[in-house]
């Protein structure tokens, strides 16, 4: 972030409470602001409410949340308008359907056109093809364009899902475990791409991560959830302390610094 952002810049969610039946999944969580041009991580153990918070911010689950993007209230918008600005990428990989990858991306664009979401409604197909090809090139998978989704590996489908999301060119991306099926090389490569895209287009990118070392070194801001409540928020090095890791993740861990200044979490055992 080059200039001081206005206090309203970015994505903020206040007083998010989500109940499934009688079970309270999120209780009065206030998160953000997640700033444009940054990559933010949502951390927490399994079942802490990370996915639910993302869905609530995207408007996909009923909640009492007040969600604003750059000062504009998202909560009152129609789902189609909202998803055009703030796109949630589900944790489940795109289904293995008998559809060429290129067409899977075109469909993601054309669906939005049909819903009259994008300003370029009824955009010609050529635009959809162009942005699909750009997005596939961005993720280094243009060679998959004509392969069917049901011929791809899980990791390849995850990359296609990411390309699908970015080809829609939203302002905000909420990525639910976008690295879960990727090998080590691709995990770092995707983080690199996200950081570059975020800076270049001033995107708000929030992602659920399990790898604390990636969170420490490749994100600008982390928010930690535990049992449906927000327990910490801030720069990763300040938030991820041994005390927090013991309380939230129930492990004895140290945060060490390598010779090059990079931090890493070293786990000694479970607490």
């Amino acid at each position: 972030m080059t200039s001081a952002p206005s206090p309203q810049a970015g994505l903020s969610a206040t007083h998010v409470t989500v109940q499934y039946g009688r079970r309270i999944v999120l209780q009065d969580v206030t998160a953000g602001p997640f700033r444009p041009g940054s990559v933010c991580a949502l951390l927490g153990p399994n079942g802490s409410g990370k996915s639910t918070l993302m869905r609530a911010m995207a408007g996909l689950v009923p909640s009492s949340a007040c969600v604003t993007l750059n000062g504009a209230e998202l909560s009152g918008m129609s789902l189609t308008d909202r998803t055009a600005r703030c796109l949630y990428l589900p944790q489940a990989l795109p289904a293995a359907v008998h559809l060429p990858v290129l067409e899977a991306l075109i469909a993601a664009r054309k669906t939005a056109d049909r819903a009259r979401v994008l300003s370029a409604s009824d955009a010609p197909e050529e635009d959809a093809i162009q942005s699909a090809l750009e997005s596939l090139t961005l993720f280094g998978i243009p060679q998959l364009a004509m392969q069917a989704m049901d011929e791809l590996s899980g990791g390849q489908r995850q990359l296609v899902g990411l390309a699908q999301a970015l080809s829609r060119k939203p302002d905000t991306l909420l990525l639910d475990e976008p690295l879960s099926a990727l090998d080590l090389h691709h995990q770092f490569a995707v983080m690199d791409i996200l950081r570059r895209e975020s800076t270049a287009h001033q995107l708000v990118i929030v992602l659920v991560l399990h790898d604390l070392n990636i969170a420490l070194n490749m994100t600008d801001f982390v928010t930690v959830l535990h049992d449906g409540q927000m327990v910490a928020s801030g720069p990763p090095a300040a938030v991820l302390t041994p005390d927090l890791l013991r309380e939230v993740y129930r492990v004895h861990a140290r945060v060490e610094e390598g010779a090059d200044g990079r931090k890493f979490v070293s786990v000694d055992g479970i607490a």
Binding site: T83, Y88, L89, A107, R114
Partner: peptide, 23 residues
Amino acid sequence: FRAAWSLTTLRMGEERAASLGVN
């Protein structure tokens, strides 16, 4: 035929379709 794109997107998963703006 008008719903063709929405139906194609729906095939990739219900949650994904919803997050892409399909009602």
